[in-house]
Design a protein around this nucleic acid. Structure first.
Length: 719
DNA sequence: TGTTAATAAATTTTT
DNA sequence: TTTATTAACA
């Protein structure tokens, strides 16, 4: 038996978690402590040592990437095909259950999934229907409201009556939104979870069936679960006490989208027989980096408590660089990257991490200038591109004529002579007859309300969908996709258009056919036709945002998307008050703590070397700002920091005064010079004007901000 | 119907 | 500053 393979490579705490006789377990796993390893080996242990069949294990993750990695590692460890394991994202698994029990869950068999873009469009349409002004009821805010309600498990009818006019309208939209989704057979992401929860809760036999089936339920990144996800897990495991969760309260960075750290406390309360295990040994970073991270996170209140340690005690100090402005910051980082590559290191082992996506531009420009290949994470993903969504909308309408969202999207895309008036008539008919837009369109073709020209175009469109559906029903998926793209006129539409964009769109459509071809190898789903399976796949896994993942590239991404990754060399840039921590988080202490956790996540991404940079001056929305360095920098003990100057490195603790001569004349000054003022403390010179006794300088002080000072009286010391 | 000028807004993101 | 959306126009 290969038990030694399973427990051999583990440390004491990991082994304890993997082999625990308890079925309910809370593993507090610090950054880089091997949490995925514990999950993978736990599953292997359950199957090999405890004889649990693969289909008796349910493993839940947040992203498809994590699920895929886990599956791959289980297969590698046990040399089995792990297909029988129920492993996937919350949404993926909920989707699977809903497909299997669509009727019992109150859904049509051919229900379609709305992604956030579809959802947004639908909400806008409903606002129009209800005659509400988008300026007063911003669709984004309503979308946020609806999703937040669903994440909390609240239906529109559950909401308390409100006297606030704004609230009343939001609830009205929510109600209409639910009604439309039900009528047209579409389900948004949050609905997948809510609907599954209600289905299990209200069908005791079904619930009992799944409770019996799953001997063990394992959850990754438990600190990121929201209320409905926890309720869902609770239903499945409450009678058998068999929930195994892995998480890290210090890495909870998604509170703003509904994640509840409280679920960690709820778990401890609801599973009183659980065992608590801490994984505190870090195998990733140097001692210096870990100590800095520990010191930083110690500033947060109410932690579950956990201190990372490593056998490595050494490590280069963390470098801190104060740039003059954001341009110069980028220049510095890219220059260091150039040296890194020159020393023979891999570009893909270096990352630039920033708080907000807008910051990437400066770095991209400088990287391009030096010809260093890079990859930016985030942004539009494959299945989210407009042309792809257009093509998918045709396919969805073929799969389900009641899908109003898709109908609206493509009725006049590409343009076929149906303007807003025609559409309005159809919408009116649909509303009056309480039928789908498709049916309404059919009726409009028959009566004479529409002008003849519009009627012609409309019946042409209806026929296009019908004949394409009939002609392609027997074809292989990829051929079906190919035909639809051609017959819909999308191909011609982009062919006529010129420019790089149109060309890229054509390539993407080509790529969609390829994706469909690849999809043929996907194992068939017993509950689903190939086309429906493909459409669900497109909605649930939006795909990568860039195709060429194989080139050796410097990695650029937000701190959020860096979670779970690690690099030898990390630059955390824009370490400034108002940027990081962000302006929006300064009021609420809770949000500030989340920012600090985000900083903790960033620091612990680095294996060997970490740089922190900030700029004395930064343009934000076209205006110049002079931010102070981030408080997080100050929360890292000075002994782990080393200030970097462009000309050589000065080794000295940050903040301590150093001797320097008086600044007597213009020659002794330069922009960016650090100076000390008797009253205002440390600062940096940003501008100067005038000469001789009239000379003035603008200084940005760390503590008191911007000041104009007369050079003759200021008595500045240079640092 | 498609283009252009004006205007407003502007974290973090997965499913 | 950049981006998206909308209103006005040819």
């Amino acid at each position: 038996m290969d038990i030694t393979r399973i427990i051999g490579p583990l440390n004491e705490a990991q082994r304890q978690a993997v082999t625990s006789p308890h079925a309910s377990l809370l593993v507090l796993a610090g950054a880089g402590s091997g949490k995925t390893r514990v999950l993978v080996h736990r599953m292997a242990w359950l199957m090999r040592a405890e004889g649990i069949p693969p289909h008796g294990i349910l493993a839940v993750t947040f992203t498809n990437k994590a699920a895929m990695e886990m599956r791959g590692r289980v297969e590698g460890l046990l040399e089995i095909n792990a297909r029988e394991l129920w492993m996937g994202t919350f949404h993926g698994l909920a989707h699977r259950l809903l497909r299997r029990h669509a009727r019992d869950a109150g859904l049509p068999n051919a229900f379609q999934i709305l992604d956030s873009d579809d959802q947004y469009r639908l909400i806008r349409r409903i606002l129009k229907n209800l005659d509400l002004d988008e300026a007063r009821w911003p669709p984004r805010q309503i979308q946020w409201f609806i999703n937040a309600c669903k994440d909390e498990g609240r239906r529109a009818r559950h909401l308390p009556e409100s006297y606030d006019a704004f609230q009343i309208q939001m609830q009205r939209v929510y109600l209409a939104y639910e009604e439309t989704c039900d009528r047209t057979g579409v389900v948004d992401f949050a609905e997948l979870l809510l609907r599954t929860h209600e289905f299990l809760r209200d069908n005791p036999e079904m619930l009992a069936h799944y409770q019996r089936r799953f001997h063990h339920v394992l959850v990754d990144e438990f600190q990121d679960t929201n209320r409905i996800q926890y309720a869902w897990l609770r239903l499945l495991t409450r009678d058998r006490d068999n929930l195994f969760v892995v998480g890290d309260d210090d890495q909870s960075i998604y509170g703003w989208r509904g994640a509840k750290i409280e679920n960690l406390y709820n778990f401890q309360r609801d599973y009183p027989r659980h065992e608590l295990i801490r994984l505190e040994q870090n195998y990733r970073s140097t001692g210096t980096i870990l100590q800095a991270a520990n010191a930083l996170i110690a500033h947060n209140q109410g932690r579950l408590g956990k201190t990372l340690w490593t056998q490595d005690l050494s490590g280069e100090p963390i470098s801190l660089y104060a740039a003059f402005n954001e341009q110069e910051e980028a220049l510095f980082v890219v220059e260091r990257l150039r040296q890194w590559v020159e020393q023979g290191n891999l570009r893909s082992e270096a990352a630039i991490l920033y708080r907000s996506n807008a910051q990437s531009r400066q770095f991209e420009e400088k990287l391009v200038a030096l010809g260093i290949p890079y990859r930016v994470y985030g942004g539009l993903r494959f299945f989210e591109r407009a042309e792809i969504k257009d093509a998918l909308a045709y396919l969805r309408l073929i799969a389900n004529r009641a899908d109003d969202a898709s109908f609206e999207r493509i009725i006049n895309t590409p343009v076929r002579g149906m303007g807003p008036k025609t559409l309005d008539t159809i919408r009116d008919t649909a509303r009056n007859e309480r039928c789908s837009l498709w049916e309404a369109a059919q009726r409009s073709c028959l009566d004479t309300e529409l002008p003849a020209r519009a009627r012609n175009s409309l019946s042409g469109f209806l026929e296009l969908i019908e004949t394409t559906a009939a002609d392609t029903s027997d074809l292989a998926l990829w051929e079906q996709v190919q035909r639809v793209i051609a017959r819909s006129g999308l191909l011609d539409h982009y062919r006529k258009e010129k420019g790089e964009q149109a060309e890229a769109r054509l390539e993407n459509l080509e790529e969609l056919i390829n994706a469909a071809r690849q999809f043929e190898y996907e194992p068939a789903d017993e509950d689903l036709g190939k086309l429906d399976q493909f459409l669900a796949h497109a909605a649930l896994e939006a795909g990568e945002n860039q195709a060429d993942g194989f080139q050796d590239c410097v990695q650029l991404m937000t701190l959020h998307s860096a979670k779970g990754l690690e690099f030898d060399l990390v630059f955390m840039v824009g370490m400034e008050e108002g940027l990081f921590p962000s302006l929006h988080s300064l009021e609420e202490p809770g949000r500030l703590e989340e920012e600090r956790r985000l900083c903790y996540v960033g620091i612990t991404r680095a294996r060997r070397k970490l740089y922190l940079t900030h700029a004395e001056c930064r343009r934000i929305y076209g205006k110049e700002n002079y931010p102070r360095p981030s408080r997080f920098v100050r929360e890292i003990p000075a002994e782990h920091l080393e200030e970097v100057r462009v000309r050589g490195t000065v080794k000295r603790p940050v903040g301590a005064a150093t001797l320097g001569g008086h600044v007597r004349n213009d020659a002794g000054l330069r922009l960016g010079q650090r100076v000390l003022h008797a009253k205002f403390g440390e600062g940096v010179i940003l501008q100067q004007e005038g000469e001789g006794s009239q000379a003035r300088v603008q200084v940005n002080f760390a503590d008191v901000g911007m000041k104009w000072l007369m050079l003759a009286y200021a008595n500045l010391q240079s640092l």
